[in-house]
């Protein structure tokens, strides 16, 4: 009998909730059409700002900058051998590059160890990072210019080299949520 008594108010509250949700919009996630920020990448912070004019090194010592990747959506990941969460996520970033890397998208994984290539290359080799090119920033100029404060930090730039968002902390970058997020930027980057 109490159930019956409660049934009507409960139904009322439910209907009201549905109406409120419809009016206000579903909480979380969707700020732009179709962009979902959830699961592995739930801490991804969307925010536009110009990409810095900074340089880092290739494994062979060549200079490289964001401009070299113009036309592609670029995911810059900073890692170091001393950073356990970086080491943890690096294999997933390697798989991400294998899955999504190409004409429209590339991962740029930059190692910031002071020891440079001598430290980073064998380490990457042990982790079987074979789909990613080795990039180095032993003096920290690029990481500083990109405003990196914690490790790992991953910054996404659009085809024009404009920052569209960043994630501080680790993630499984080949998870469906991460792939969906990056595909959204690929499809919505003019």
């Amino acid at each position: 009998m109490t159930i019956k008594k409660l049934a009507l108010p409960a139904a009322g509250i439910l209907v009201a909730a549905v109406v409120v949700v419809l009016l206000v919009g579903l909480p979380g996630g969707d700020d732009a059409a179709g962009l979902k920020i959830e699961g592995q990448v739930q801490n991804f912070a969307v925010g536009d700002r110009p990409g810095p004019d900074t340089e880092w090194r290739t494994g062979d010592g060549g200079k490289v900058s964001l401009a070299d990747f113009s036309g592609k959506v670029v995911m810059v990941n900073f890692w170091a051998t001393w950073c356990a969460p970086c080491i943890r996520e690096l294999p997933s970033i390697n798989r991400l590059q294998a899955t999504l890397g190409g004409e429209d998208f590339t991962v740029v994984a930059i190692n910031i160890d002071t020891g440079g290539k001598a430290v980073a290359a064998p380490f990457a080799k042990r982790l079987e990072i074979d789909d990613l090119d080795l990039y180095l920033d032993p003096r920290g100029s690029a990481s500083r210019a990109m405003g990196v404060n914690v490790m790992p930090t991953t910054v996404v730039y659009d085809r024009q080299g404009q920052e569209v968002g960043r994630l501080e902390g680790g993630a499984e970058w080949d998870s469906p949520e991460a792939l969906a997020l990056l595909r959204w930027f690929i499809n919505n980057s003019g």
């Binding site: 801490n43 003096r139 920290g140 500083r144 914690v150 490790m151 501080e168 902390g169």
Partner: peptide, 20 residues
């Protein structure tokens, strides 16, 4: 995790050893 990283975002840590 979320709060942690948003707190951290306010930090002013010098990351690279050179900067340190």
């Amino acid at each position: 995790m979320k709060t942690e990283s948003s707190i951290l975002r306010w930090g002013r840590w010098a990351l690279s050893p050179a900067l340190r």
